[in-house]
Structures are given as structure tokens and as C-alpha cells.
Design a protein around this nucleic acid. Structure first.
Lengths: 204, 204
DNA sequence: TTCTAAAATTGAGTCAATTCTGTTTTTGTG
DNA sequence: CACAAAAACAGAATTGACTCAATTTTAGAA
């Protein structure tokens, strides 16, 4: 079962995702009907449900791409961080935030987050939780790196700190996508201000 | 227009909420059909939509009661906090967490949270954001109180700190309700561990 | 008490996600 | 090449939230 069937499968996956991404951007998540996605992808409604458990999973596939890109961009910062704890955090979190609206509108983020808490056991729900965890890990990795370079105290509880920083950023980001008029610059400033308290506690 | 009409209105509100709360607990939020709620409340489907904009708003009314109760319970701690920063935080956040599953199941919390990010401008979405803000205020109030008593440094950025603590707790709580097997004791312990870092930074 | 406008209720109808069942396509074997 | 089993597809049917036009109930004026 290597040839035709597998090729068609991959192709249909791609067509569905492309059609959905287009329509989500154009009409919004709620506004995009499965029937329309199916038509544009040139498959039937039934087939879409053969590939994805529900409408949310389609969005999920798109979100996953976005977050993975962000994770990649973050690697550079972790391996070679700015020589100052505050700047290092700001740079890493800044990358997450600045990338965030590249492919996904605020409305798409709202839907994605909603689905991930509503259906935590669906494929997307689990994937989303996994992505959050990976982001947390990356922040932890930065802290470890800063400890190695001697910028952060060795006796700090790294795992707890990483989680704390991620949780705060994530919650601020959730509030950010909930308000259409909220600006990225303000979000970053607010997070920087909060992290200043932490930086004072952990910097050597 | 004081008498009969107002009385009937209040009565119908109560019947709808009671029926919904029962059914949400029994069958879960998704499992509870509007039709069934209407039947149990002895009103028609249309009437329910005359009282609430959508299914989420019914859940919202129930959540608001719960959170308001928690806020009340918190007042006592703020006005008379334990004589130790770590314990004071643990006591206040502990009250929030311990109360949380009193009326609402994890599934109901998941739905409520999902709706509040999905529809931030619906009546419930706005109410939920308001409740979050009020909880944050209460944490800030505790910090101010601790500053007055001389347990927390005066030069700490209170608003930023309050938000940081709330955001972290809230995010941990979200993860907690997403996993049915997660235990309250573990949640509290994890948050305590995270707050320890902060306590070190802010205690006199 | 009688009547009228305003307010509220009703439930059949609409709409879109999801499910289900019969049909078609693909695969691998003889 | 022919064929049977497995996999995938199609689209009609189902389901449940939400709407709306018609009807009923209430308030309060005459």
C-alpha cells in the first residue's frame, strides 16, 4: 500500500488544509462551512471527516505548523542568548509573540485555544497541550543556558521558573487575542514589566 | 410593572438555571439539550433564548455565582492574612482552588473557559473577563495589605506582581481542569513551588 | 369591568456540523 | 488479467442550537 493510495491521501490532506486555511482567513472560522471547504478541496464532506475528527482538528493542523515555526525561531535565541537576563527573556518571548499573527488571525487563535480546552483529549487538544509543553521546555532551556553562562543563580528552581514565565506569557497572550484592539507592543511591554520582578529575583 | 410580571420573570430565571445546573452535572454541558432544559424548567425553547443569548450564557450565570462565592471567601484572607508571605498567598489561592469544584465539574469549567475565549464579547465572555480581573484585584489587595504590615517590600510593582501571580495560577488551573485525573493537592503544591521563587524576591 | 398596546411565550422551521450506509476505488493474490 | 477483501468516498439523513412570526398574557387607562 505504497503507491497511488498514499499519494492521493497526502494530496487530499494538503488540499483540505489549503482550502480551510484560505476560507478561515477569508470568512473566519465560524464563517467557513465544511461544505464549502469540501467543495474547494474537491472532496466530499464525508471525506473530510475521514481525514479529521472534526472542524477543530482542521484548524489544529494549521496552528501546529505555526507553533512549530515559532519553536524553530526560538532555538537560535536559546543557543546564543543576549548577555543580560531581562533582554534574553524579552528576546525569546518577543519571537513567540511577533510570529504569532503571521499565519493565524486573532479569531483563529481564539477558536484554537477554545477547542484545546473544550476537547483536551481530541487529537488537536493533545497536540496543543504538547506544543505548550514544548514552549515551556524551551524557556527552561534558556534558563539553563543562562545559568551556564553565569547570568542566573545556580540555586534557582529552573522547572518551576520556566513554567511560571510561560504561564504568565500565555495568559497575557490569551487576553491579547481576546481583544481585537490590543497591540503587540503593549503586550510585550506588559510582559517585560512582569518579568522584571522575576529577573530581580534570579539574576546573579 | 412591579408585580406579577416581575415575579414570573424571576421565577423563570431560577427554574431555567436550576434545570440547567442539574442537567449539566448529570449529562455534561454538551449532553444537556436546550430542549431538555426547557422541558425540565417548564418553559419553551424560545423562552430560554428570551432570557439568555445562547447556551453558553446559561452556564455563565452558574459560573458567576461560583466565582462570586470564591471572591467573598477571599475577602477574609485579605483583611486578615497569615503573618508570612508564602502562607498568605497559599491561603488565598488555596481558597480559590478548593472552592472551584464545589458547584462546577471540570467539564463545566472547560466549557466555560472555552466559551469565554471563543466569544469574548458575549455577555458571558465579558462577565468572565470581569471576574478574572476582580480576582486579580483581590490578589493585588493582598499584596498591598502585606506591604502595609511590612511583610512585602514597598518598592515592589504591585499591579504587575498581582497579575503575574494570578496569570500563573489561572493557567495552572486551566491545565488542571483539562486533565480529569489531576488532583487538587498536586495543583496547590505546584503553584506553591512556583510562588516560592516570587516570595524570595518580594519578602522583606 | 373592558379594552388596547406592550411584553412575553411558543414551537415549528432553519442552518450547519457530524454520522451513517451504500458505492466505488485500490490493493494484492492466483 | 480476474477477483475478493480492505480502504476510502459520497452525499443523504440526523441532530441540536438558535430564530422568528404568530399567539397569548399582562399592565394600566378609561
Amino acid at each position: 500500500m505504497s503507491g497511488l493510495r498514499a499519494r492521493q491521501k497526502a494530496d487530499r490532506h494538503r488540499r483540505i488544509i489549503e482550502a480551510a486555511a484560505d476560507l478561515f482567513r477569508e470568512a473566519g472560522y465560524e464563517g467557513a462551512k465544511i461544505e464549502t471547504i469540501a467543495a474547494q478541496a474537491e472532496v466530499s464532506v464525508g471525506t473530510i471527516y475521514n481525514y479529521y475528527e472534526n472542524k477543530g482538528d482542521i484548524l489544529g493542523a494549521i496552528v501546529s505548523m505555526e507553533v512549530n515555526e515559532v519553536l524553530n525561531a526560538g532555538r537560535g535565541v536559546v543557543s546564543n542568548p543576549p548577555a543580560n537576563v531581562g533582554d534574553a527573556l524579552d528576546t525569546l518571548l518577543g519571537i513567540y509573540i511577533e510570529h504569532s499573527l503571521h499565519y493565524l488571525s486573532k479569531e483563529m487563535w481564539r477558536q484554537a485555544m477554545a477547542i484545546s480546552t473544550q476537547l483536551p483529549d481530541s487529537p488537536f487538544g493533545q497536540a496543543y497541550t504538547g506544543l505548550d509543553r514544548t514552549l515551556t521546555e524551551q524557556i527552561r532551556a534558556l534558563i539553563v543556558r543562562l545559568q551556564e553562562v553565569g547570568l542566573v543563580r545556580r540555586d534557582i528552581d529552573g522547572p518551576a521558573l520556566g513554567e511560571l514565565i510561560f504561564n504568565n506569557m500565555n495568559m497575557m497572550f490569551i487576553e491579547f487575542v481576546k481583544r481585537d484592539e490590543a497591540r503587540i507592543a503593549e503586550l510585550r511591554a506588559a510582559i517585560r514589566r512582569q518579568n522584571r520582578i522575576l529577573v530581580a529575583a534570579i539574576a546573579v
